[in-house]
Design a protein around this nucleic acid. Structure first.
Lengths: 252, 252
DNA sequence: GTTGATTGGGCTAGTGTTAGACCATTGAGG
DNA sequence: CCTCAATGGTCTAACACTAGCCCAATCAAC
């Protein structure tokens, strides 16, 4: 019937955009996605080691799934050693997982497991969203409360014991996204962080690196508090570039 | 049994992070999510007016759903007037939707439909991811081909007829994310764009605004081609801030 | 015309998922 | 010691979704 015939601008390849939009609607079945989500909470330390998940009924509502499916996921994580489930009042699903202390060679294996395409995708993705979040936050008017949270996260990280470091580092980075007030952005940053968390856990924590990271964290906070989006973006970019460069070295 | 007892750092409210990670696993049932995805392809102009969607069997595989569910979604869009479905060879689901020409008052209605919380969330989200994408792209080494695509999108936009403007504007913005080479980032930017597309469609296209946008687009491309992440971020931020300010005016 | 490849239309049997009810266990408090 | 509220454990009927198959319509090519 109708329909424009010639669209000269379409000579540039549009298939990439088709693939972008017409990608799979679901990453897997409800069970698999639930396992992933709980793993995210555990591995990112949102539920700290020794703490417990919300009660099943409550959690099922939050996740928008049935209790049956949730219980399957919890059982899988229990069998995989992430959770310890106890019955009765004051019972629940307790996190037993503690992030592995990195040993030499782990990193190489993790990188190999991931595939180079996925790795660069994840690193690029994280770079973009975290830089964006920091710049947006720096560009916004901050309340005293927001400033306090930011300073507090930074202080927590400085005082952190080694076994708490990754968890508090995650908390610091995610706080930046959360403070923007955009749930979409916070969720996206959490997603980006998870995609590199196995890699981060496999990186040995050397004193030099920790000190380097600490000063970078300070630079990020300083730029945000100063209301300087450009400096904030640059500080985050430099911080993440350090990690990325280290990982990229394992690709060659 | 075990379990760390005192975690002083947890005094800072962690419930926000719990809500971020333990959010619903699925946005809706497969049918609803499929409708949304197809609407994204149509409204963003990824499938241009008059063009047709891929064959059902192929599309179902791409979307990772069954043909039955896909057909339900297509039928819904057909009944809603977005598609014209024709049988037989050379048949298919043809896009009939043409973006509405904005009339005065539409914008106010669309903004009201959305809710102020969702609106600021969407605007913040878009600001962060598009700024991040542009900065990342500017920071990377660009091939001649990539440069050519960028220039081409810009030229297309300059020559665009009014009825093609939104579609080509979308193509321009999404190309920046796609050129980073990160499918995750491209998908996220597409998502962010969709969340504000109804708003953008309701904004009257005045000559002044178009000229203003054109020079901003040029500034973005120039910064990226010059390899200046800071300038790229700033140019995108200024460009999007114009839209955001206009929309925010309708909140008061 | 006739044909054949391509496409949407529709059916069925089997599996995944949900909502809701009820049971079993635990442990603090009376 | 008992009680009872909070929690995980289990079952069932109903609904959603899928894979695979075959039918029906269309139209370019012969």
């Amino acid at each position: 019937m109708a329909g424009p015939v010639t669209r000269p601008e379409d000579t540039v390849d549009d298939s990439a955009r088709l693939m972008t939009v017409l990608r799979p609607v679901r990453a897997g079945n409800a069970f698999e996605e639930t396992v992933e989500r709980l793993l995210q909470a555990i591995k990112l330390g949102v539920v700290a080691p020794g703490a417990k998940l919300p009660p099943e009924r409550e959690l099922a509502v939050q996740l928008g799934i049935s209790r049956v499916t949730l219980r399957e996921a919890i059982r899988a994580l229990q069998e995989a050693g992430y959770l310890d489930v106890r019955r009765g009042r004051y019972g629940g699903a307790f996190v037993t997982y503690v992030p592995p202390q990195p040993g030499t060679g782990d990193l190489r294996r993790v990188v190999a497991d991931m595939g180079t395409a996925d790795l660069t995708d994840a690193l690029t993705f994280r770079m973009a969203v975290e830089c964006g979040a920091a710049a947006v936050l720096a560009a916004s008017e901050l309340t005293d409360e927001q400033r306090a949270v930011l300073r507090r996260r930074l202080a927590d990280l400085d005082e952190a014991r080694v076994e708490d470091y990754r968890r508090l580092d995650t908390a610091f980075h995610l706080s930046i996204a959360e403070l923007t007030g955009s749930p979409l952005l916070a969720a996206t940053c959490a997603d980006a962080r998870l995609r590199v968390s196995d890699l981060l856990n496999a990186i040995p924590m050397l004193q030099v690196n920790l000190e380097h990271a600490a000063s970078q964290h300070q630079a990020i906070v300083a730029a945000i508090l100063a209301g300087d989006p450009e400096a904030a973006r640059r500080a985050v970019a430099e911080h993440l570039e350090g990690t990325a460069a280290l990982l990229r070295a394992f690709l060659s």
